[in-house]
Design a binder for these strands. Structure first.
Lengths: 329, 329
DNA sequence: TTGAAAGCGCTAACAT
DNA sequence: ATGTTAGCGCTTTCAA
């Protein structure tokens, strides 16, 4: 593969001139430009990003940290990140951490090593202390899950009020016994959604009963199945359930189905995230939609602004309660 | 951020010696090594990959081309690719082409530009001609979708025989009228699965009826819904349907459900891919499982071997028919 | 065992 | 308008 010097020689100019043509900087006579372009063409020259990046000390690569690919929740966010990034000359590197600190370190090092210019983290299991240290020296944005009171800028929705709204919807339908399928409260969104759940119950003078709150060990469908199974073993069963993720809610629907229970007649279900699948279940799932594409898009714009040295502020976006069959009675 | 020279000065050695310590090459006295490690520690030095990559003219980055993230089919393959790659010191860059030639070009250029060392393409819509040209100069592996008679090495399953087996299963259950929900036959797997479908029918002297073969415009759930709707409008309806992807099959199940038809009593359904969701539908979905993780793992090992200059051969992996409720009658 | 120095491919300051 | 040159951070050959 030809390098810039060979192009320069063939065109009878210096490498500086070739660089000017390549980057459309400085001034080049149209005659010289023509010669250079001809040489580029003839040699099928492609500039090496390795040289350019070293010289400019930038990689134009952004890291996107997610715990794992298999959660469909992330796909639309990633689309948003990717669209903004590519439009602005950056590429993204999707990093699956598997909630594994070793992997996390690899990715952190890529930033320290100048292999990437910044990070968007969507990983709720990320080591926030390390990330905050890293944020001292490198541009970092949090997306969806963030650090309350921390210093790293974030994009998110108001989880507390979204959960509140979902529960209020269930209450207005006449449900007084409302269960919660939550996930580990080490996650901020889990704590926030639980708070919203409790606020709504209190507001309507409904009791908060611990046996109606089930905490799962993960977000797979199977965890939702498991959770619903437990709730159905109770003497006094809830008449509605709010799951903090669609995957859990779908697992719950599956279990209800297997038990021959009718949703929403026997029990109403609300999920969270509006993954594409939530419209394919029977019944279709009532859920909270986050503006995922916009979240990703916004996060990317914040990160790139931050890389360019501009100051960025955290952003709270709107959500929407999408009412479908699982709560239509 | 300190560079190698500062470390060298602080340790009272040359940058060459620091490099030797860093890379564990050459010979360094344990005393010198100690001094260098101390200096690295004190300065919190992290080697720049930019410099190293330029020098070694490699990026240790692999591109993985997929048409879009939202198809859950790809997630396990990606896990396999990622595990092998990371274990061997490479990182992967997930590239969503959206079947858009412009995006594709960006990614091709990254390889030409030395920003990436090779490509694994899972994109059935990729411009095979361009990719083949690129493969002359750069390591490229195809995964799952490949180029029949082409020169690029691939990992895949035998789609024709997998479809054949699925149809034979339906026939043995007593189905004589079997529909096919296929996708655009510009895709190799679509042509191969159709062939398998036809071979099984012929073998049992069953007619191949064009009105029972529906070709969708895409792989979203909604396309499956649409396809089933059309098949149900026929005067003579099929008693079983084979869809070439789980997403389509799940859409079909949804439509059957909406129409109040029972699966498998009124109509049996078989999908393809064994996505995690296929076990959450009601009824659960009979489907063909590809060894996705292994496919990804294999593809990555082939690519890295190819980068290291070793010769690689195409690989055909085994599949498995997973029988679930949608065909249990 | 260690150091000096060249060079990977590029850009930009400076000179002409 | 164009060329000369230094240097980004690293590795490696050659010499000591």
């Amino acid at each position: 593969m030809a390098n810039i010097l060979e192009v320069a020689r063939r065109a009878g100019v210096s490498s500086a001139t070739v660089s000017r043509v390549l980057n459309k900087t400085g001034t080049v006579s149209s005659n010289t430009r023509f010669k250079v372009e001809k040489a580029i063409e003839e040699l099928k020259y492609e500039p090496s990003m390795l040289g350019r990046n070293l010289r400019n000390s930038e990689s134009r690569l952004l890291l996107v940290l997610i715990p794992n690919f298999s959660n469909p929740y992330y796909t639309e966010i990633i689309n948003g990140i990717e669209d903004y990034s590519i439009a602005n000359g950056y590429n993204i590197l999707l990093c699956e951490t598997d909630s594994n600190p070793d992997r996390e370190n690899i990715f952190f090092n890529m930033v320290k090593n100048k292999l990437a210019d910044g990070i968007i983290s969507m990983d709720p299991t990320v080591n926030m202390q390390k990330l905050t240290e890293l944020a001292d020296e490198h541009p970092i944005i949090l997306c969806s899950e963030y650090d309350e009171g921390g210093s790293i800028p974030y994009v998110a929705i108001d989880n507390e009020s979204a959960a509140y709204k979902a529960i209020k919807h269930l209450i207005k339908l006449g449900n007084h016994n409302i269960g919660l399928i939550n996930t580990d409260e080490k996650f901020l969104y889990a704590r926030q959604r639980r708070k919203g759940y409790e606020r709504a119950l209190k507001e309507f003078n409904l009791p908060i009963r611990n046996e109606w709150i089930y905490t799962t060990a993960g977000l797979d469908f199977q965890h939702g199945v498991q959770a619903m199974r437990k709730l159905l073993q109770l003497n006094e069963k809830p008449s509605a359930v709010f799951a903090v993720s669609d995957t859990l809610a779908i697992g719950a629907l599956k279990e209800l189905n297997v038990r021959g229970l009718n949703v929403p007649d026997d029990l109403s279900v609300v999920g969270f995230d509006n993954i594409s699948f939530s419209n394919m279940t029977t019944p279709t799932l009532t859920t909270v939609a986050q503006p995922m594409y916009k979240m990703g898009f916004t996060a990317a714009s914040m990160l790139i602004n931050s890389i360019k040295g501009r100051k960025v502020e955290s952003v709270i976006l709107d959500y929407e309660l999408i009412i479908r069959e699982s709560t239509m009675k």
